[in-house]
């Protein structure tokens, strides 16, 4: 808004927008609307995909497995138990290590542990079972 327009607007008169400005405004609005619109479309598709039956079932199964391992650790091990989770950083074992937090004390090496904890095939928690054996 330049000075003339400002005074016109302030005095209550109509501030007729110039054609260039109108075209520019339309161009900027179109560019932005196209980019934002495409992204919104993409986002809505994503949300629909997360809410698909297969995705929801997978997530629910994962949630149940997580809570099952959490409870199994607390039922099979005494509180404060020094445990060792072999090769914990390379797969599902990490979940046993992390979900033991606040109950057992994971050890970086087997020498200081009293129990060896691992996740093996089974039916206890989905397709896994928490295996606990004394060292």
């Amino acid at each position: 808004m330049d000075a003339a327009q400002a005074s016109q607007a302030a005095s209550g008169g109509p501030a007729a927008p110039r054609a260039g400005k109108l075209l520019g405004c339309a161009a900027v609005c179109c560019i932005s609307a196209a980019a934002l619109g495409l992204s919104i479309h993409h986002g809505l598709q994503d949300t629909a995909a997360y809410l698909g039956k297969r995705s929801v079932d997978l997530a629910a199964a994962n949630d149940r497995q997580e809570e099952c391992i959490y409870r199994a650790i607390r039922s099979k091990l005494p509180r404060g138990a020094p445990i060792y989770v072999p090769d914990y950083a390379h797969g599902k074992e990490v979940r046993a290590n992390d979900l033991a937090t606040l109950w057992a004390v994971p050890q970086p090496a087997p020498a200081t542990a009293r129990w060896i904890v691992s996740l093996v095939r089974g039916r206890e928690c989905g397709r896994l079972r928490l295996k606990v054996r004394p060292r």
Binding site: A15, C25, V28, C29, I31, A35
Partner: peptide, 22 residues
């Protein structure tokens, strides 16, 4: 995307200015 969202607002404000002083 924020930059893309800001310019239309500035453009609309500039093209259809409000009855206000500065």
């Amino acid at each position: 995307y924020t930059e893309l969202a800001l310019w239309p607002v500035i453009a609309l404000d500039g093209t259809f200015p409000a009855r206000r002083d500065q």
